[in-house]
């Protein structure tokens, strides 16, 4: 695929990370260990919104981490598919933070997070229809333009599908990435969770991805509820079936930077790093 000069510049900056870099989602219980022991990690990813607030301590910690490691930003509140226009104050705060840490790229989800003045603080699905491809693509393009750095869109894990959908999830996601001129943050655990919840073939999803636009792959653990629904809880090691899917994605489109998220019941950092190291085995 030929990129425009603007896209090529974005890619060059994002690829400031090694193409096979291994990164970790940095969470509060690990700051002390990271600052004291400087573990071998290629980069850290942080939740953008955790550093927008007034509390100075998180920002001070982040600056100390950034002095040693590249830091990429991952958002959960952009509200790309909300009915209301994007929040300019949010975008300004995001741009300031991205500039402050010189993030190789910034990412958020293909979802909505709030409506009618209420923020639901969750990553919520919509029907998958062409009308929303156009809406999300135009907004994502604008986000990337305002940030002045690569913006990657993450595929969602979901627990419900809607009758109104005329596109499959992977058709919807791939179209938004393609038409926005932005990039892909491809979450393989999310593919697995959604495939189990909705009964589709995860390999069909893998085959629909344009790997030349993947800036990062996410991995995480999930939980199976009593009724069989898989929930994207990020509170377990990565499931074997997800590692297998990762290995197939790597063969199809690797190398790509890979990042492990562990957000609840967080074990000590050496244990999380050991889980991340499994990615090397999966790539063989």
């Amino acid at each position: 695929m030929a990129f425009s000069p603007e896209q090529a510049e974005c890619l060059r900056r994002a690829r400031g990370l090694a193409p096979d870099a291994l990164g970790l989602g940095l969470r509060v219980p690990h700051y002390e260990y990271v600052l004291e022991h400087a573990p071998q990690v290629d980069y850290f990813e942080v939740i953008s919104e955790n550093f927008f607030g007034p509390a100075p301590t998180p920002r001070a910690r982040l600056e100390r981490v950034r002095a040693r490691y590249p830091v990429v930003l991952h958002g959960v509140g952009l509200n790309l598919l909300g009915h209301a226009p994007l929040d300019n104050r949010y975008l300004d705060a995001l741009a300031r933070l991205a500039d402050a840490v010189d993030a190789p790229f910034v990412s958020d989800h293909l979802c909505w997070t709030g409506a009618h003045g209420v923020s639901h603080h969750d990553l919520l699905p919509t029907p998958y229809v062409p009308e929303l491809v156009e809406l999300a693509a135009e907004r994502a393009h604008e986000v990337q333009r305002r940030l002045g750095r690569p913006f990657a869109i993450e595929n969602l894990s979901s627990y419900v599908e809607f009758r109104a959908s005329t596109l499959s999830e992977w058709e919807f996601y791939a179209a938004v990435v393609r038409e926005s001129g932005c990039w892909s943050l491809f979450d393989i655990n999310n593919v697995y969770v959604s495939s189990q919840n909705h009964g589709f073939d995860a390999d069909v999803y893998l085959a629909a991805i344009d790997y030349s636009r993947v800036l990062e792959v996410h991995l995480a653990g999930h939980t199976r509820e009593q009724d069989g629904t898989l929930v994207d809880t990020h509170d377990h090691p990565v499931a074997n079936s997800v590692w297998a899917l990762y290995a197939r994605a790597w063969r199809m489109g690797g190398p790509f930077p890979t990042m492990l998220e562990w957000d609840a019941r967080i074990p000590p950092l050496p244990e999380v790093l050991a889980e991340l190291e499994k990615a090397r085995e999966a790539r063989q």
Partner: peptide, 27 residues
């Protein structure tokens, strides 16, 4: 509920309930 799809092991309302529970437990 009518807009959401039922699945063999759980009806649409039960699928929506995952989000309902998550909303409250997160807050």
């Amino acid at each position: 509920c009518a807009e959401a799809l039922d699945r063999p092991l759980s009806c649409a309302a039960e699928r929506l309930a995952v989000y309902n529970r998550q909303y409250w437990f997160r807050l």
